[in-house]
Design a binder for these strands. Structure first.
Lengths: 185, 185
DNA sequence: AAGTTTGATAGACAGTGTCTACAAGGTGAA
DNA sequence: TTCACCTTGTAGACACTGTCTATCAAACTT
């Protein structure tokens, strides 16, 4: 296994165990057992390394999409929504990193490729349900934006503590059920 | 004007002009024309100062709510949703700070007081619309959570660049229209 | 075998938050 | 007044951070 891959592994583990604040370049180097400057031989900077880590997150998200169980388009869309929320709840630090523009490089080619694939997949799923007569008059990408944003906000607010802290929702899934009910009727 | 207030002013200006990454304790001190350690005479640390700044954001958000134009509960709720999104778009750095738990102190008394007031106000507005027959069977706070999360996600994703970058939505308001249509029918 | 590239190291630098020692000025009591 | 005390601000230090540079060893190429 290459040193580059080992650095990403170490960073991903550190991220999951200690949160976004712990993935410092020097901390990753120490955890990997190399000198503090070694990671810069494989990555142009911290943002590049963290972009590689975030790319793994988007890859797993994409895998969750392609591994969706068979069913009607509508059922698959509902499953995808639960999958998105489930991923965020299961990997809170990774989810946070994936949307922290100040920590990653938004123009990283691999990152933009995989993240775009995730969103395109979701939009295609939405369009497929629309073919079945759901919101036929609405622009598919606009509808996908709206629904995705609802999922995303739910995940963010729950992880942030706003919903639980204000005792708004007993669980994120309960709020998701209301959201899906509003969209899918 | 007290030195404490002047520090918050300076920090808020710095935040709006240069973004979250620029509101360092030393940068604020320099902008305020004092030594780098002076702010610690008025705040226990950076998180305390930034919490005071974020409290201003929540206060303005609350003002936007109480300044809502007259109309039916439904009209007022729609206006509040546009207000939330409008605030985020008009004050992107402030909006980011308000939901960055690593930069502010989540237990700051003033902060929690004002932010809770914002969310309670929104929940009350939702409940008021429900009294008119909208989603009567749904728990008001759960419905408020769902709708608020949708707004929040829309603001976050737009500022993050996900919706514009993937050319998902031509404007955040266009996506909001779809969202409100899904909820309000 | 010689030259070149790659990977890793250690040191340095500026910048960060925070702590401590110190000084200046105001306030109130003896 | 004189003294003690408190507040506010300063300057220096410390341990961090990311990044740059010089150096060195090993491996690969020709």
């Amino acid at each position: 296994m290459g040193a580059r891959t080992r650095l990403i592994d170490t960073a991903a583990n550190l991220l999951a165990e200690a949160g976004v604040g712990a993935v410092t370049l020097r901390g990753i180097a120490k955890a990997a057992g190399v000198s503090h400057g070694a990671p810069l031989r494989h990555f142009s900077g911290r943002a590049a390394l963290l972009s590689a880590v975030a790319t793994r997150g988007y890859t797993e998200l994409l895998d969750r999409g392609t591994d969706l169980p068979d069913g009607t388009p509508r059922e698959r869309l509902v499953a995808a929504c639960h999958g998105y929320l489930g991923f965020a709840l299961a990997n809170p630090a990774m989810f946070e990193l994936m949307f922290r523009r100040d920590l990653i490089d938004p123009d990283d080619p691999e990152l933009t490729r995989v993240s775009s694939a995730v969103f395109d997949f979701f939009a295609a799923l939405v369009a497929e349900v629309q073919d079945g007569g759901w919101h036929p008059a609405t622009d598919p990408r606009l509808l996908a934006s709206s629904l995705w944003a609802s999922l995303h906000g739910l995940a963010q607010l729950w992880l942030w503590g706003g919903l639980a802290g204000a005792s708004f929702a007993p669980s994120p899934e309960s709020a998701l059920a209301v959201t899906l009910d509003a969209y899918l009727g």
